[in-house]
Amino acid sequence: MKVAAVTAPAATQLAAEGIAKSYPGVQALAPISFTVSPGERVALAGPSGSGKTTLLYLLAGLLQPDSGRLCIEGQDLTAMRPGKELARLVGMVHQQFDLVGSLPVVHNVLAGRLGQWSLASSAMSLIWPRERRLAQEALERLGIADKLNQRTSKLSGGEQQRVAIARLMVQSPRIILADEPVSSLDPALAEEMMRLLVELVEDSGKTLIASLHSPYLIKKYCSRVIGLRRGQVQFDLPAAELTEAVLDRLYDLKAERI
């Protein structure tokens, strides 16, 4: 795939120009603009209903913006073919991992290749898995190679989380989106999830955009934090400059403490 020529060190990988989205009766995302450079690890913070998920879904191509433009590596997202092209640029890890429990692990991992395989190959692979080695290697790196042929629903939460990451490794998109990747996990698994995501991102020079609430995780694993509130960008800071006061204001915690 052709990569847009990198002219400046901080070339723009993703550009959102005045993107907006509303649902009947709700303005989920006011027109907002921002850019992300390759290799950045961006945390999206903000209370429920602030537009984080809407923004991530727009970036993933799951939703179309009502107005504005979204460009990834110079290509307009809306003009892109959803399967093949988009899947190479953007991948997503979901809140509950959202794997297909009744399928063996190998197919859940190889699902990361569905954008590149022909329909016939995809169907055949359910019987004779193609590129099995790819799945095997990904699982080996994550330390669960022995689960390759197990039924996915039999795996523990932590193992399923690794299967979801293995799918992303096999898909290998340039930008990884994570929708509340740790909200349903205990602290140890949450930390593990962030470590694996950041490892994956750093190993291959990818970009991460994740909705996160914990200032600890944001500071430890991200380079930048964007605070969203009522569909608008309230702040956009280097993660190191994030303070409790800034977050409290974002989540309106002061008001509740009185």
Partner: peptide, 26 residues
Amino acid sequence: EPLRALRTAGASPMRQFLYGRVPLAL
């Protein structure tokens, strides 16, 4: 949800059918 996850992995509706709907409904 699993279908949406397959979609973000690049699966077309037909591939979502094979890898998502069929195993989930079977």
